[in-house]
Amino acid sequence: MIKLAGIPVSFHPLFVIVMLTSVFTGHFAELIVLFGIVFVHELGHAAAARMLGVTVLSIELLPFGGVAVMEENGYLTAKKEIAIALAGPLQNIILAGMALLLHLFEWWDGPSLTYFIESNLLIVLFNLLPILPLDGGRICQSLCSLFIPYHSTLLWSSRISVFFSGLLTVYSLHPLVLGQGIQLNLLMVGIFLLYSNLVDHGHIPFRFIRFLIGRQRTFSKQLQAAKKAQPIVADEAKPLDAILRLLKREKYHFVYVMNVKGELMGIVPEQRIIASYLSGHPEL
C-alpha cells in the first residue's frame, strides 16, 4: 500500500495477478497505460470529493478498474454524489481530448495514440453502466434517492446492479453461440461485479442502519431547512422500521401519528423515531 496526498492506495490481489500475467503474455506496457488511465480516473473522483468537503478514505485498484472509497458521514447530497461520480469519466474525456490535440499538432500518431484514445472512451462507457460500484451505478442510485425513499433506493439500485452485471456476464459468453472464443476479461469482470452485488444486496439492512445514524448526526442542519420538511402519516401501531423505510434522503420528516379513528395523536420528529428504533423499541 502507498499513499498519495494522504490517501492510501491499495491493490486488489487479482490486480497483482493480472499485472504479473501480462509480463508473460507480452501486454505489460499496454496494461500499465490502461491502469495509469484508470488511476487518473480515480484521482478525478478523489479531487472532486475533497473540493466538496467529502473525506476520501482510500483508492483501491481492482481487476476491472478502481474504486475511490469515501466516508459516509450523512453530509453527502445526491447532487454532490453525482458530481463526484461524473468527475472520473470527465478525466478520461480530457485525456482523450489532449491526445487528439497532440495528434492535430502532429506530435503523436500511430497505434499507441489509437490505443490511448480508445482505452479512455471504453473506460468512460464501461463506468457509466448502471452497476454499483461503477459511476453509472452511483449516479443511478443518487437519482433514485431524489424521488423514492432511501430504503427503496438501496433495494432498487442493488437489483438494477445485479440485473445488469448478470447481463454483462451473459453477453461475455455470446461468442460461444457464434462458435468463437469467449471474452475472458469481460467474463471475469461480469462475474466479479455480479458476485459483489449479490453480497452487497445482503448488506442492505446494515447500510440502512448507517444511513439512520448519519441522519442523527445531521439532525440540526436538516431541522433548519424547513423547505425540505415532508410529513409522514402513520398509524400508532405501525412498526418503527416500516415508518423509517419511508424516509427520503434529502427530506426532513415529521410523523403525524393517527389512531384507529383517524384522530391525530401527536406529531413526532424523525430523530425521536430513529432514536427509539436504534435503542430497540419496535413501535411508536
Rank of each mutant, 00 (worst) to 15 (best):
S279Q: 11
F164Q: 01
P205D: 03
V67C: 13
L167C: 08
F15K: 07
Y171V: 09
A242K: 10
A47T: 14
N120Q: 14
T21C: 08
V18L: 15
D109G: 12
D241C: 10
Y195V: 15
R210L: 10
Y256N: 10
L43P: 11
A49D: 00
I131M: 01
S22W: 01
F208I: 10
L212R: 12
A87Y: 06
K221I: 14
G266S: 01
A87S: 07
L4I: 14
Q230P: 00
P205I: 06
H41E: 09
Q224F: 13
F163K: 12
F163C: 13
A49L: 06
H12S: 07
H45D: 05
A87L: 14
A242G: 03
M19G: 02
L146I: 00
G97W: 02
F147W: 11
A68P: 02
N127M: 03
I17C: 00
P149S: 11
D109I: 04
F35T: 03
V189N: 13
Q224I: 12
Q141W: 00
A225Q: 15
V124D: 02
W108K: 08
E118D: 15
S58A: 12
T153L: 10
F116L: 14
W156Q: 02
Q91W: 01
R50I: 05
C144V: 02
V33E: 03
S165Y: 10
F163S: 13
I139R: 03
G190A: 11
M70A: 11
K261E: 09
L247V: 03
H253C: 02
A225F: 14
V54A: 01
T218E: 13
